[in-house]
Deep mutational scan, measured.
Amino acid sequence: SLNIVTVTLNMERHHFLGISIVGQSNDRGDGGIYIGSIMKGGAVAADGRIEPGDMLLQVNDVNFENMSNDDAVRVLREIVSQTGPISLTVAKC
Rank of each mutant, 00 (worst) to 15 (best):
Ser1Lys: 13
Ser1Ile: 11
Ser1Met: 08
Ser1Leu: 05
Leu2Arg: 04
Leu2Asn: 15
Leu2Val: 04
Asn3Gln: 02
Asn3Arg: 03
Asn3Lys: 04
Asn3Leu: 02
Asn3Met: 03
Asn3Ile: 03
Ile4Pro: 07
Ile4Cys: 03
Ile4Arg: 04
Ile4Ser: 06
Ile4Glu: 10
Ile4Gln: 04
Ile4Asp: 02
Ile4Tyr: 05
Ile4Met: 11
Ile4Val: 03
Val5Gln: 04
Val5Met: 14
Val5Ser: 07
Val5Cys: 09
Thr6Asp: 06
Thr6Asn: 12
Thr6Ser: 13
Thr6Ala: 04
Thr6Gly: 04
Thr6Leu: 03
Val7Leu: 05
Val7Gly: 00
Val7Asn: 02
Val7Ile: 14
Val7Asp: 00
Thr8Arg: 09
Thr8Ile: 07
Thr8Asn: 07
Thr8Pro: 06
Thr8Gln: 06
Thr8Asp: 06
Leu9His: 03
Leu9Trp: 02
Leu9Lys: 00
Leu9Phe: 10
Asn10Ser: 14
Asn10Asp: 14
Met11Gln: 02
Met11Lys: 07
Met11Arg: 09
Met11Gly: 03
Met11Cys: 09
Glu12Lys: 11
Glu12Ile: 05
Glu12Thr: 09
Glu12Leu: 08
Arg13Gly: 13
Arg13Lys: 14
Arg13Val: 06
Arg13Tyr: 12
Arg13Asn: 14
His14Gln: 13
His15Pro: 03
Leu17Ser: 00
Leu17Cys: 03
Leu17Asn: 02
Leu17Ala: 04
Leu17Pro: 04
Gly18Asn: 01
Gly18Ile: 01
Gly18Arg: 00
Gly18Tyr: 00
Ile21Val: 13
Val22His: 12
Val22Gly: 13
Val22Lys: 15
Gly23Pro: 15
Gly23Cys: 04
Gly23Asn: 15
Gly23Thr: 05
Gly23Gln: 10
Ser25Thr: 15
Asn26Asp: 15
Asn26Tyr: 15
Asp27Tyr: 09
Gly29Cys: 08
Gly29Glu: 14
Gly29Pro: 13
Gly29Ile: 12
Gly29Thr: 15
Asp30Trp: 06
Asp30Asn: 09
Asp30Val: 08
Asp30His: 08
Gly31Glu: 14
Gly31Tyr: 14
Gly31Gln: 04
Gly31Arg: 15
Gly32Trp: 07
Gly32Thr: 05
Gly32Ile: 04
Gly32Cys: 04
Gly32Phe: 05
Ile33Asn: 11
Ile35Asn: 12
Met39Thr: 04
Gly41Val: 09
Val44Phe: 04
Asp47His: 15
Asp47Glu: 03
Gly48Ser: 08
Ile50Asn: 01
Ile50Thr: 08
Gly53Ser: 06
Asp54Lys: 00
Asp54Arg: 00
Asp54Ser: 01
Asp54Gly: 01
Asp54Cys: 07
Met55Pro: 01
Met55Thr: 11
Met55Tyr: 12
Leu56Gln: 00
Leu56Arg: 02
Leu56Ser: 01
Leu56Cys: 00
Leu57Gln: 06
Leu57Asp: 00
Leu57Phe: 05
Leu57Ser: 03
Leu57Lys: 12
Leu57Cys: 11
Gln58Glu: 13
Gln58Ser: 13
Gln58Gly: 06
Gln58Trp: 14
Val59Met: 13
Val59Ala: 05
Val59Ser: 01
Val59Asp: 00
Val59Glu: 00
Asn60Phe: 00
Asn60Met: 01
Asn60Asp: 07
Asn60Val: 00
Asn60Glu: 05
Asn60Ser: 08
Asn60Pro: 00
Asn60Thr: 01
Asp61Asn: 09
Asp61Pro: 01
Asp61Lys: 10
Asp61Arg: 07
Asp61Tyr: 04
Val62Phe: 06
Val62Lys: 11
Asn63Met: 07
Asn63Ala: 09
Asn63Ser: 12
Asn63Val: 07
Asn63Glu: 11
Asn63Pro: 08
Asn63Trp: 03
Phe64Asp: 01
Phe64Arg: 01
Phe64Ala: 02
Phe64Gln: 00
Glu65Gly: 04
Glu65Arg: 09
Glu65Cys: 04
Glu65Met: 12
Asn66Gln: 14
Asn66Pro: 07
Asn66Tyr: 11
Asn66Glu: 15
Asn66Thr: 10
Met67Pro: 01
Met67Ile: 06
Met67Cys: 05
Ser68Arg: 06
Ser68Ala: 11
Ser68Tyr: 11
Ser68Cys: 08
Ser68Thr: 12
Ser68Glu: 08
Asn69Gln: 13
Asn69His: 13
Asn69Asp: 14
Asn69Ile: 09
Asn69Arg: 12
Asp70Tyr: 07
Asp70Ser: 07
Asp71Cys: 15
Asp71Phe: 05
Asp71Met: 06
Asp71Lys: 14
Asp71Asn: 12
Asp71His: 07
Ala72Phe: 00
Ala72Ser: 05
Ala72Gln: 04
Ala72Gly: 15
Val73Glu: 15
Val73Arg: 15
Val73Ile: 10
Val73Tyr: 10
Val73Asp: 15
Val73Leu: 08
Arg74Lys: 09
Arg74Leu: 12
Arg74Glu: 08
Arg74Pro: 10
Arg74His: 06
Val75Ala: 09
Val75Asp: 04
Val75Phe: 08
Val75Lys: 13
Val75Arg: 08
Val75Cys: 09
Val75Tyr: 11
Val75Thr: 08
Leu76Ser: 11
Leu76Cys: 07
Leu76Thr: 08
Leu76Tyr: 14
Leu76Lys: 00
Leu76Gln: 01
Leu76Ile: 07
Leu76His: 00
Arg77His: 09
Arg77Gly: 11
Arg77Met: 04
Glu78Pro: 05
Glu78Val: 05
Glu78His: 04
Glu78Lys: 04
Glu78Cys: 09
Ile79Trp: 02
Ile79Thr: 06
Ile79Asp: 12
Ile79Gln: 04
Val80Pro: 15
Val80Leu: 07
Ser81Thr: 11
Ser81Arg: 09
Ser81Asp: 09
Ser81Lys: 13
Ser81Pro: 13
Gln82His: 13
Gln82Ala: 13
Gln82Lys: 10
Thr83Trp: 02
Thr83Ser: 09
Thr83Gly: 03
Thr83Gln: 06
Thr83His: 10
Gly84Cys: 05
Pro85Gln: 11
Pro85Ile: 14
Pro85Met: 06
Pro85Asp: 05
Ile86Met: 07
Ile86Cys: 15
Ile86His: 09
Ile86Ser: 01
Ile86Gln: 08
Ser87Gln: 08
Ser87Val: 07
Ser87Asn: 14
Ser87His: 06
Ser87Thr: 06
Leu88Ala: 02
Leu88Cys: 13
Leu88His: 01
Leu88Ile: 07
Leu88Met: 14
Leu88Arg: 00
Thr89Phe: 14
Thr89Trp: 03
Thr89Cys: 15
Thr89Lys: 14
Val90Asp: 01
Val90Cys: 15
Val90Met: 00
Val90Ala: 02
Val90His: 01
Val90Gly: 00
Ala91Arg: 05
Ala91Asn: 15
Lys92Thr: 03
Cys93Met: 12
Cys93Thr: 15
Cys93Ile: 01
Cys93Ala: 15
